[in-house]
């Protein structure tokens, strides 16, 4: 096993779309082991995508099980993942191993369903929400050459405000004014 070098911006390879995995062999499994070791060596990353390690293939790892009070599927290796359903939207703060020393706000779907293969090529389907769904969307973006920087929204985005404003209205109605 080995810790791989992480590509950082402005490396052009981070902008490339990755190729599907077709060969489910020992080489793939060995790379996945290295990728997981690389994720764990970094600063508390809950996910990592193969292109971040310079391998332009559709492979991601997500594991949010270390976070308290977070619904999760444990350690997931997603090969050729495809998000097939999106629902709701939510603003959250993200950072990235490939974008050192910067975090920013991004809107993601609150709930998703996806299909993916495991390292042996078997197909699985997942339904997930919240932080785990956010992590998967972040990693799948890497496979399409997208970084969270491509989805940044203003701190002043009206999503926060709209929620607050609606709450205010409800209160007023309850108070009968």
């Amino acid at each position: 096993m080995a810790i791989l070098d992480i590509l950082t911006i402005p490396d052009e390879r981070l902008k490339q779309a990755s190729e599907p995995v077709t060969l489910f062999d020992a080489g793939l499994r060995s790379f996945i082991a290295d990728l997981e070791q690389t994720r764990q060596a970094g600063p508390a990353a809950v996910g990592i995508a193969a292109p971040q390690a310079g391998r332009s293939q559709r492979i991601v790892i997500v594991d949010v099980s270390g976070r308290p009070k977070t619904a999760n599927h444990g350690y997931m290796v997603l090969v050729n993942p495809e998000i097939i359903r999106w629902e709701g939207f939510e603003l959250g703060r993200e950072g990235c191993l490939s974008v050192p020393d910067y975090t920013g706000n991004v809107i993601r779907a609150e709930r998703i369903e996806l299909s993916a293969q495991d390292p042996d090529g078997q197909f699985h389907e997942y339904a997930m929400e919240g932080f785990e769904a956010r992590a998967v969307q972040h990693e799948v973006d890497h496979l399409d050459g997208l970084l969270f920087l491509d989805r940044l929204v203003s701190r002043r985005t009206d999503l926060f405000r709209r929620k607050i404003y609606q709450k205010g209205i409800q209160r007023k109605e309850k108070g009968g004014t």
């Binding site: 970094g42 600063p43 508390a44 990353a45 809950v46 996910g47 990592i48 995508a49 997500v62 976070r67 959250g92 703060r93 993200e94 950072g95 990235c96 191993l97 975090t103 932080f131 956010r134 992590a135 972040h138 990693e139 607050i164 709450k167 205010g168 209160r171």
Partner: peptide, 13 residues
């Protein structure tokens, strides 16, 4: 006045 405190969960991926 309505004050709500929540966690900011920064995702690193």
């Amino acid at each position: 006045i309505d004050v709500s405190v929540s966690a900011v969960d920064t995702l690193i991926g």
